[in-house]
């Protein structure tokens, strides 16, 4: 019998009677990570990784019914063995492994294979069927090494400091912001927007240590942030709040910045290809490591990536989901949801 079914409400586990990252309210939802397009409001009950529990409560509501478990452990639901494995996407992100009568399906959620020295690194899981994301499923997307990226970004900050400029980074409050904090550790005082500050506090309750930051609000003295580093959600681009920052040099941090045109289209100074998703080779490497006999490709370049997989002899199919609101202007996470 089939283990999973793609329905209008989300990915459904038939014998388990639960959904994976559903986009409509259901009774039981297993959540891969805390981004708004994967962890949605309205589920009667949630199951997520231990490190995502506080994030879900913070984002969806303190009163939600949520249980959690660590990586590499197992829970049986209606005869289906459910396990979490590191996805390396954000803190608390998990691949969801389902096993029923010896048949194994793995749902990747969002993932990256490169180590960012902050999240638990991605771990490939062998399975019969693999459901993979494809946000950056084109061969033009190949990320540089984390050290090289860090060097580039730190050089930019040093150059800004020498010119008496404040370095402003734009990155989503969950995931990208913490990654930027890590990349900028030791470069001077880091100020973060309230939305990021709140997520950081939720993460701190799990015992994970993040680089030290200060809260930056509308009331923060302009002079205080001069020459410092400020991290804000992308929704603030062009807002009065950013305009208040003295001598700001702004940088968008997103995988889309790999393409020069994407940066020039925005009125920012710099664009750094910092992504929490797998690049082309990362996707291929992950898919191959699963040894899956069937690969379902979701959000991103699903048509292209699944066509390519079929050509190289890996049976594949594209699947329409509601993940990744927009292929261009966000990295799998809707802009509007971030303003909160």
């Amino acid at each position: 019998m089939k283990l999973i079914k793609f329905t209008k409400k989300g990915i459904y586990c038939i014998p388990g009677k639960f959904y994976l990252d559903p986009w409509f309210p259901v009774d039981f939802a297993i959540i891969s990570h805390g981004h708004a397009d994967h962890a949605r409001w309205g589920m009667s009950h949630y199951l997520c990784h231990d490190d995502s529990k506080a994030i879900l409560k913070h984002r969806i509501g303190q009163d939600i019914s949520v249980e959690s478990m660590p990586y590499n452990s197992e829970k049986t639901i209606n005869g289906v063995k459910v396990g979490f494995f590191p996805a390396g996407h954000t803190i608390g992100s998990a691949q969801i492994r389902l096993e029923h009568k010896g048949f194994v399906v793995v749902f990747s959620g969002d993932y990256k294979v490169k180590n960012d020295y902050l999240t638990v690194p991605f771990e490939p899981v062998k399975c019969h069927e693999f459901i993979t994301e494809s946000t950056f499923g084109l061969p033009i997307y190949n990320w540089m090494k984390e050290e090289e990226l860090q060097q580039k970004m730190q050089d930019w900050v040093l150059n800004n400091q020498a010119r008496n400029r404040t370095s402003v980074f734009l990155g989503y409050s969950l995931g990208k912001a913490q990654r930027l904090m890590k990349l900028m550790e030791g470069m001077g005082e880091i100020y973060v927007h309230t939305a990021i500050h709140n997520i950081n506090e939720a993460i701190a309750t799990t015992g994970i240590k993040l680089p030290a930051t200060k809260k930056w609000t509308a009331e923060t003295d302009k002079k205080e942030v001069q020459n410092k580093i400020v991290i804000v959600p992308p929704a603030l681009l062009g807002s009065n709040m950013i305009k208040r920052i003295p001598n700001a040099a702004t940088a968008i941090c997103s995988g889309w910045m790999q393409i020069r045109g994407n940066k020039r289209w925005q009125s920012v100074d710099a664009g750094f290809p910092v992504s929490d998703h797998a690049d082309w080779n990362g996707l291929l490497q992950a898919v191959k490591a699963t040894e899956a006999e069937k690969v379902y490709v979701t959000h991103g370049s699903q048509a292209i990536f699944s066509k390519y997989l079929n050509e190289i002899g890996i049976p594949s199919e594209e699947v329409k989901t509601e993940y990744g609101s927009n292929e261009d202007d966000t990295e799998a996470e809707p802009k509007s949801k971030q303003a909160s």
């Binding site: 084109l138 061969p139 033009i140 020069r260 045109g261 370049s301 066509k307 050509e311």
Partner: peptide, 14 residues
């Protein structure tokens, strides 16, 4: 393959 090159080109535009 060529189709993948062309998909890439149409995304990059250069």
């Amino acid at each position: 393959p060529e189709w993948l090159f062309l998909e890439s080109y149409s995304t990059v535009g250069d």
